[in-house]
Write a protein that binds this DNA or RNA. Structure first.
Lengths: 213, 213
DNA sequence: CCTAAATTGTTCAATTTTTCACTATTATTT
DNA sequence: AAATAATAGTGAAAAATTGAACAATTTAGG
């Protein structure tokens, strides 16, 4: 029972550290220092140590961290030691792209089904993933013990899809629709708003914001 | 010459306010209070006012904000009163999905070209957008006065694509590859890491993190 | 075996961001 | 015309986050 509140930024950095460590491990590197991790992922060394310190002591003073060992610890922290079945709602371009995105598979996410309302898409397969009608959502979530849903539908339907996912006891939603959606507080929600990201860039360009790395 | 440092979170909220105001405007709503904006986008009312206060006084005390007026101001702040030509590197699923993503067009981003190394894709059109070979990148960036590039290639090529964009004087890069890339400090860079977002969710699920809305 | 070099874990200070509480202003009602 | 209600703008407090400094620990070398 973790009692401390972990900054979300810390969690997202852990995810990045993890990917970096995975790369190092494949290269056969055995130990690494916080400074080298920091250098590799573009943050400060103190930040790296601080992030890890929330969860325990994984390094050896004077030596550094064992790559494999630290990697395993972080995967455990992130809950990535088991595979996560995921459903994607919306079999349009974005939904399809997400299904084919290797990054998900590599990190242990397993897209078990897609859903759409378009009769032309229903019951077809996209790279081995079947597109189901929305009616099947509840059954499949239950059958495959799905905890996470990805919303990739137009903004105007995002809320109703979210409601449907919630009704079917999903634990977490990753929303790609450019819409503000509301869910009960026990449901985890994250928004990936593609336009917002471009707009931060335009803001920075027109306001001549300096990057501070 | 803006002298104040604006939190990035503020900028991203402005983008969300902007979308919300656009919706209100379409509905014909004339005025709105900070409280209603806050309610609509899921933040605090003081936060809304503070965010706006960085840029000026846009409201009327006792009354609220004029929807059209405030919306225009925010678009101006974000640099969205002109259209932005954008290039997308990588004509795979993700690149294609991004090109077809309506959210970009709606917000004034205009994808003028895609690039890929696959001879099967080169010189083909994807929904009216031509896929060019990488050699053409420099010419098109210059010709169309492109300031922003989107990277949608596999992680292992992300850095070299970034270097290429930088060499061709791009101002800002939106990187979708799950890789840490380095650019000179005068180039704006944002990473949208899809896996990281899912991993924050798994972390929250396994650690039973409470949402605090 | 002792000293020096490397590097973690941790404390404390600095900074940044958010929230709260209050003041000022406008419109409305009596 | 005065009183009341609504609501923006703002300064200060609080909270969160980051960064710097340093003590503790390990390894390696003389």
């Amino acid at each position: 029972m973790k009692m401390f509140k972990i900054p979300e930024a810390t969690v997202s950095r852990l995810s990045v550290y993890s990917r970096f460590l995975s790369k190092l491990d494949k290269k056969g590197i055995i130990t690494i220092s916080s400074g080298e991790i920091a250098e590799g992922v573009g943050v400060g060394a103190a930040q790296v140590r601080k992030d890890l310190a929330y969860f325990g002591e994984f390094g050896t003073r004077g030596v550094g961290y064992n790559v494999k060992d630290l990697h395993q610890h972080i995967l455990k922290i992130l809950g990535l030691t088991t595979s996560w079945p995921v459903v994607v709602i919306g079999a349009g371009n974005l939904g399809t792209a997400l299904c084919l995105y290797d990054g998900f598979r590599e990190r242990g996410f397993n897209i078990v089904a897609m859903f759409d309302v378009d009769p032309l898409k229903i019951d077809k397969e996209i790279e081995g993933i079947t597109v189901y009608s929305m009616e099947k959502l509840g059954d499949i979530i239950k059958e495959k013990e799905v905890k996470m849903g990805v919303i990739a539908v137009p903004a105007e339907y995002a809320q109703q899809i979210a409601d449907l996912l919630v009704k079917n006891n999903i634990c977490a939603i990753l929303n790609f629709a450019p819409a503000v959606i509301k869910v009960p507080e026990e449901v985890q929600l994250r928004n990936v708003d593609l336009s917002v990201n471009l707009e931060i860039l335009t803001f920075n360009i027109v306001n001549n914001v300096k990057n501070l790395y």
